[in-house]
Write a protein that binds this DNA or RNA. Structure first.
Length: 484
RNA sequence: GGCCCGUUGGUCAAGAGGUUAAGACUCCAGAUUUUCAUUCUGGCAUCAUGGGUUCGAUUCCCGUACGGGUCACCA
């Protein structure tokens, strides 16, 4: 077989839906898996929808994800141009070629007539379809209309009988009756191609071998096939992928707030995690591993793993995967990214950021959670003594008060307030008392933070807060518990 | 409504005509742990439904229900 050439052909809307991104990913993986080429083509024929800077959004997203294209508008290639609006010249010729072959025809019907027709059909409860009024116009009539400059479109002449079968790599063979296929418009009144027509011609002229696209095109695939047949061209392999859903009945939509790559980025997810998660939404790996770098994805990707049914987007799992990536970061890298987030709520200059990051990393799922996680450092929040009660730790208000009273003098006596010294001193206490670690350490953690979850345990928090602040917070804890 | 596609646990999902029906996330229980967290161990499903084929079907076929898609001079 010749070289595999796949293409991602987005419209520049300024918005990269993750379903689209996932299509791009699969398209990319399919090409790379087979040592082929991944091509970017911008489909910008809809001028009304054109948004400034939208193409840059596509470039940036793809590049950030590592989905680098081998041919495209910015880098060129042998089959350009790669922006659809720049390829307009050729479509009319191709459409006329089809007319000559008897596979398409001129249609001079006015918009009014078509609307009327649709209304009548709708009223009698039959699905709207063009009635092929112009399909059998005489040569003379056509010539006359053309000469008079009557506006026209060119429509595809669907066979009147029989059925059309096309093959999809995921769904297998799909057959439909030709009788339900509409004589769709190929070339519009303004001489521009319709999307479906442009797609076929572009894919063929760019020598695309595999087309990965959303499931919404499954219904129009037979018409595509007929077009390829009409031209005498070899159709590409089709790979239709299902939608990403918000729930069982709704597609993940823009208004849901996490439908685009940018939305997810804004929520603090890492690019690698997003890509890894969407890979899994609709595709299943052969083995048990679910964590993949882009290179590993290329290695593991296989069309047979693509799912036939829609997948519901699960933020919880995305978060878990993100947590995995956050924790796998080298500590220097984690620190570099985390410090700005820490500084949002923790302005104190004397905190040991290295220590803080070290304890924060295993507890971080999202970088955007960090400000809230460290907000207690600058100022002890108001908290309820309920926090001191923990069944598992076997702590109560009484045992906690007792513990804090014992901790206080010990920490007061420490001249060298380092993590190591604090640890040794407190563990000596624990041993003397003959209690579980938690009985001493749990109340300390609560007193120092006023929070249920904290980055680090009591010892670490004490070291981070420093002697003076730690002691004052412990005294505050004793005061609160004594007041009960 | 016509046509097309789908349906395995709360979610993503593997899987094969006869299996203890993988794995991941969540949840629950327990163990470690410088307490919470992390980490580790364990627990939670008869595969939408009715019928058929078969010695045997969740796996093959047909119907039903439910869900999605599509029926533009939009892409």
């Amino acid at each position: 077989m010749s070289e595999v050439r796949t293409r991602f052909a987005p419209s520049p809307t300024g918005y990269m839906h993750i379903g689209n991104l996932r299509t791009a990913l699969y398209t990319y993986l399919l090409a790379k898996k087979n040592g082929g080429k991944f091509i970017l083509r911008i489909e910008d024929t809809d001028r009304e929808r054109y948004v400034d800077g939208a193409v840059d959004v596509i470039y940036k997203t793809l590049r950030d994800c590592g989905l680098n294209w081998d041919e495209g508008p910015d880098i060129g290639g042998d089959y350009g141009p790669y922006v659809q609006s720049e390829r307009m010249g050729m479509f009319k010729d191709y459409a006329e070629e089809l007319v000559k072959k008897g596979k398409a025809y001129y249609c001079f019907c006015t918009k009014e007539r078509l609307e009327e027709l649709a209304a009548v059909q709708k009223a009698s409860n039959i699905s709207p379809m063009y009635d092929r009024h112009c399909r059998n116009l005489s040569k003379e009539e056509i010539e006359k209309n053309l000469a008079e400059g009557v506006p026209y479109v060119i429509r595809q002449a669907i066979p009147e009988e029989g059925s059309t079968t096309f093959h999809d790599e995921i769904y297998g063979d799909i057959t439909v009756e030709n009788s339900i296929l509409d004589d769709q418009i190929l070339l519009k009144t303004d001489g521009m191609p319709t999307y479906n027509f442009a797609n076929v011609v572009d894919d063929h002229t760019m020598k695309i071998t595999h087309v990965v696209r959303g499931n919404e095109y499954l219904s129009s695939a037979p018409k595509y096939n007929l077009l390829y047949e009409a031209f005498g061209w070899e159709p590409p392999m089709y790979i239709h992928v299902e939608h990403i859903m918000k729930d069982a009945q709704h597609k993940l939509a823009k208004r849901d707030g996490d439908a685009s790559f940018q939305d997810l980025l804004d929520k603090g997810y890492m690019t690698e995690a997003i890509l890894n998660y969407i890979l899994l939404l609709g595709w299943a790996p052969k083995g048990e591993n679910e964590i993949f770098s882009l290179d590993e994805m290329v290695e593991a990707f296989d069309l047979s793993g693509i799912s036939k049914s829609p997948a519901i987007f699960d933020p919880q799992k995305l978060k878990a995967i993100n947590a995995h990536y956050v924790r796998a970061l080298p500590i220097e890298k984690f620190t570099e990214i985390a410090v700005p987030y820490i500084r949002e709520t923790c302005k104190r200059e004397d905190v040991d950021l290295d220590l803080l990051c070290r304890v924060l990393q295993p507890r971080a799922e999202l970088f955007t959670d960090i400000p809230e996680q460290v907000d207690f450092i600058d100022k002890l929040p108001e908290y309820s003594t309920e926090l001191y009660v923990n069944k598992k730790m076997k702590t109560t208000a009484e045992t906690s008060l007792d513990a804090l009273k014992k901790i206080l003098p010990i920490l007061e006596g420490l001249s060298d307030f380092t993590q190591e010294k604090i640890h040794d001193a407190l563990f000596a206490l624990i041993e003397r008392e003959g209690v579980k670690n938690g009985v001493i350490l749990f109340p300390l953690r609560v007193a120092l933070s006023g929070k249920q979850f904290t980055p680090g345990g009591g010892v670490e928090l004490a070291a981070i807060l420093g002697k003076e602040d730690s002691l004052s917070r412990i005294r505050k804890g004793i005061e609160l518990l004594s007041a009960q």
